[in-house]
Design a protein around this nucleic acid. Sequence first.
DNA 1: TGCAAAATTTAGCCGCGGCTATATTGTCTG
DNA 2: CAGACAATATAGCCGCGGCTAAATTTTGCA
Lengths: 141, 141
Amino acid sequence: MSNPASPESANLPARFSHARHVQAKAVMEDYVEMISDLLAEMGEARIADIAQRMGVTHPTATKAVARLKTAGLAVSRPYRGVFLTEEGAALAEKVRARHRTLVDLLIAVGVPAEVAELDAEGMEHHVSDAALAAFRTYLAK
Amino acid sequence: MSNPASPESANLPARFSHARHVQAKAVMEDYVEMISDLLAEMGEARIADIAQRMGVTHPTATKAVARLKTAGLAVSRPYRGVFLTEEGAALAEKVRARHRTLVDLLIAVGVPAEVAELDAEGMEHHVSDAALAAFRTYLAK
DNA sequence: TGCAAAATTTAGCCGCGGCTATATTGTCTG
DNA sequence: CAGACAATATAGCCGCGGCTAAATTTTGCA
């Protein structure tokens, strides 16, 4: 039994640890979604376009893609465009849907659209499936 | 004029850049709030307690405090407890209030309390003043 | 077709924020 | 009051995710 007498500080370490774990995946999620967007728009995701849209230099994008490949989310041949694995594509879709739902929720509670987009970019990675479900239920009303 | 014909991808770099900038401050905010909590509870913030509550090893806490000192948020003498500067204390208060408001909002839209606490830990750093104001207005209804 | 320009990669730097292992300092007790 | 133990600090490692500068490959055009 979790002791209710112990202050709520007891599970704080776990909360912070969880937040760190989620955050570690955040950048990867952003790159995957961006690659997915570029594939849909232009049929190809080039390093230069990824870098430009992420607001990052080319070498940074190259390194990020290398990490994606190591993680099994993307594939590419040298000097060629980047593509997503099935797993990468699935992640992109999940991330995209979560982003939209969060923005919709923020707007629904009165946050200006511009602000909602800006804040959602960082918040979205920490929205759990349980929270997402609650958001959808709320928005359905 | 910002071209409305250009797709919304135009300001994406700025959005990501903003999210990265916010994220860079996140860990610091967490440590400052924790130190503030410890000062309130025990009159002193010791490295061992900071580390324990953050779910981190002692040396990691020491290094974090060093960064806080460099940033002008904390002060400490070697082998002694850590204290906050006025700026650090003000930041702690702001962070604490923002956290509470976010948790309240999540609960208000139907997120279970446990989940709200967990998700808020990571989301909170990205909640802008504008969004916070909207949250308060919503909760006041 | 061959060369110049553009795109990509590689190399190497930085600070952050984790870690383990070790050294140092403070404290408490026998 | 001395020595053991607890707390803190230091050293050094790692991967991430930025960067600049330089090498390499691809591409497009004269």
